[in-house]
Amino acid sequence: MKPGVTQVSIIMKVLLLTIGLVLIAAPLQSKAEYGDVLINNYSEDAGMRPVVFPHWFHRIRFRCKVCHADLGFKMQAGGNQINMLKIIDGEYCGACHNGEVAWSVETCDLCHSGLPGMSTQVHKSTASRLLSGANKKQQESQQ
């Protein structure tokens, strides 16, 4: 057998093992809904609870394209430098959360409803389970 082939098979075995571990570990994770994004780029530093963005709620009402193409949301948790000024000016969340399509910025605590101490992440994402430290802050705060 070529050395390259052996390496590939080892990588595959490691991968399968990892998937297995992820599946086993899955129930031990938080009970949040799959795809819930917690955004804590600036919130807690500014004295607000972090924001919970529920993907499930929004995809019932909009196709991915509306936010991720038209409104320019990058497909990365915390990758959009969103602040309240941009929202008030109609960018990002503010394109809909303006009191016409969806609730406006006055109802702070409907979006800023996350538990304090959590870091920005997509809940139950495979990558965050695999990459050590991605959930560290959250686990610490739950201890």
Binding site: K31, D109, L110, C111, S113, L115
Partner: peptide, 16 residues
């Protein structure tokens, strides 16, 4: 009850 929303936050209880 989902572990990421703050139950002490009033708005949390209004969410679907």
């Amino acid at each position: 009850k989902d572990g990421i929303h703050d139950p002490k936050n009033e708005g949390t209880h209004m969410l679907q």
